[in-house]
């Protein structure tokens, strides 16, 4: 495998890092490696689901980020467990979790598109609304997660959790969404150059609205599943804010938008879960863990150089008059170089 293939497949790095951390864990603990992988595969899907939503949002271009995912997860946890408890159906509970995620995303979308609020502020505000609702729900909350769903989430035939298979299928769907649907192509076009996409006849506002709603729905789904797997709590989603952005970036998705790498979210998700395991094994504090993760994200962004756009390197230097720039692109002769 030559350098070109690695560069053109940025998701390889996440998996490589995951394998490396796995090997270190094996060396330190001396336990069977299969068990570690199985555990990682049962924890990673939650991160991957919320990460896929975040990936779509980040792909929509510079400035787009969804910081409401963490509060949505916490809120959806309570709502889904509560609804499942009162209706007796886990499916309705999950749907309620997704619905509440979409509702919060509607607030963000209206603020972003209707009021032209920057996405980070809009989703932060929507997240605050979600957390207040969560706090009032958490007060005197008595319902317990549906035991059937909890059991299902713990089923591991041959060591592979069913949830991991389901989320792998979901990832496949997202890949198809990005490659084969008009929405997916439009999203990638908007992320590369919003003005150009608008002039090419893409309904930019609709694409962006859809993206935030999907992200909200996926965060809601994560919350519903996570609450059934662990238990609903007010800080259920807290760690997923940094982690969801981190797995997207480490997975090879361009932070400046226009290139989404769904498989990379898996690699980076496994890496993060294994890293958690390793750090716990060594006995680091949560603070040190976060420090390490934050540093990793910055390091990856430094390596990526903020994106491989044609103008990416030029912008680091002093701006030159644009008249000349338009005509000095490479000529047609070396297109296959």
């Amino acid at each position: 495998m030559n350098i070109r293939t690695i560069v053109s497949r940025p998701w390889i790095w996440g998996f490589a890092a995951a394998v490396l951390v796995w090997a270190i864990i094996m060396a330190i603990s001396g336990q069977g490696g299969g068990q570690t992988v199985s555990l990682a595969l049962s924890l990673a899907p939650y991160l991957v689901v919320v990460g896929l939503g975040q990936m779509l949002v980040i792909t929509a271009g510079p400035g787009n980020i969804d910081v409401s995912v963490a509060p949505i997860i916490s809120l959806a946890g309570f709502v889904s467990v509560g609804v499942a408890g009162s209706t007796g159906s886990a499916t309705v509970g999950i749907l309620a979790g997704i619905g509440v995620g979409v509702l919060v995303a509607v607030i963000s979308t209206v603020a972003i598109l209707g009021l032209s609020v920057p996405p980070i502020i809009a989703t932060l505000a929507a997240g605050l609304v979600a957390s207040s609702v969560t706090l009032s729900l958490a007060n005197g909350f008595t319902a317990v997660p549906d035991p059937g769903l909890r059991q299902l989430l713990n089923v591991r035939p041959a060591g592979i959790p069913i949830l991991a298979v389901a989320v792998a299928a979901l990832t496949g769907l997202v890949i198809l969404l990005l490659r084969r649907t008009v929405y997916g192509r439009s999203l990638i076009a908007v992320g590369q150059n919003r003005r150009a996409a608008e002039r090419a006849g893409i309904p930019v506002a609709r694409v962006i609205a859809t993206t935030y709603l999907v992200s909200g729905a996926l965060a809601g789904l994560t919350g519903a599943l996570l609450a059934a797997y662990i238990a609903p709590s007010a800080d259920l989603g807290t760690r997923y804010l940094l982690d969801s952005v981190a797995v997207v970036v480490i997975g090879g998705t361009l932070i400046s938008g226009g290139r989404a790498v769904p498989v990379g979210v898996w690699g980076a998700g496994l890496f993060f879960i294994l890293l958690d395991g390793l750090v716990n094994l060594v006995g680091w504090s949560t603070a040190a863990q976060n420090l390490l993760k934050g540093g990793l994200v910055l390091f990856v962004l430094f390596l990526a150089g903020g994106g491989d756009r044609a103008g990416g390197t030029a912008s680091r230097f002093r701006r030159r008059p644009r008249t000349a720039a338009a005509t000095t692109t490479t000529t047609g002769d070396n297109t296959h170089g």
Binding site: R185, A189, R199, A200, G258, D308, A310
Partner: peptide, 27 residues
Amino acid sequence: YVPGDRQRSGVLPLWSVAENLIVTAMR
């Protein structure tokens, strides 16, 4: 619409010729 300022409002820089060309007709 065919924009005049192709760097700013024409080209989708990460895509190939085919992808750039078909993005409008795709719909």
